[in-house]
Amino acid sequence: MQIFSTFEYSSYIELAISDLEKKGIKKEDIFIVPLNNRTEDRRIFDSLHRADGVSLIDLGMALATAFSVIGASIGFKLSWGPIYWGIISAFSGFILGLGIKIFMFKVIRKNQRLLRGKHSEVILIVDCHAADAEAVEQTLWKNLALGVSKVRPDGL
């Protein structure tokens, strides 16, 4: 039986391995695969088929609405009238909001990600007998595994 588990890259994976070795699992039956970190930056703009759930235009739309109301109100006193000044104000509010969001994602969140340090996960695969599977699974959960799954040799 094979047991797959994922861990954050920390000392807990070393503790899990030493606990498994104390329980009689041989070193040859333990396989560790570290995942690589992403090397390229994430794309800011989404395509038609891929979206990351982050909206860049929400603040721009809110500021466009607020600016257009204010611009239309002030436009009654100006020479071009409320419609033109409402459209000009909406456009400038949208550009301002879009600029703020792009600045936040490119500068502020990138710095936060660098300060926190983005560590990848580690996959731990343990080959064991079916009788030892429950003890191995409990050991992995006790050592803060992110996820654990068992695969029997017959494919079930």
Rank of each mutant, 00 (worst) to 15 (best):
I3D: 00
F7W: 13
E8H: 10
L15I: 05
I17C: 07
E21W: 08
I25G: 01
I25M: 02
K26G: 09
K27E: 10
I32D: 02
V33E: 04
N36A: 13
N37D: 11
R38G: 01
R38E: 05
E40Y: 09
R43A: 00
F45G: 00
H49P: 01
R50N: 05
D52F: 06
V54D: 10
I57P: 03
I57E: 11
D58Y: 12
D58S: 13
G60W: 04
M61I: 15
A62V: 12
V69L: 15
G71M: 04
G75W: 00
K77Y: 04
W80S: 09
G81N: 05
I83Y: 08
Y84W: 08
I87M: 14
I88E: 01
G97S: 05
L98H: 06
L98Y: 09
G99R: 14
K101Y: 01
K101W: 02
I102S: 07
I102C: 13
F103W: 13
M104E: 15
F105P: 02
F105E: 13
K110M: 07
Q112W: 07
R113M: 09
G117R: 15
G117I: 11
K118G: 08
H119L: 14
S120M: 12
I123W: 04
L124D: 00
L124P: 00
I125L: 12
D132V: 04
A133H: 04
A133L: 09
E134L: 15
E137A: 10
T139P: 03
W141M: 12
L144I: 10
L146E: 05
V148K: 05
V148A: 07
S149Q: 14
K150V: 14
V151S: 15
G155Q: 09
L156E: 12
L156C: 11
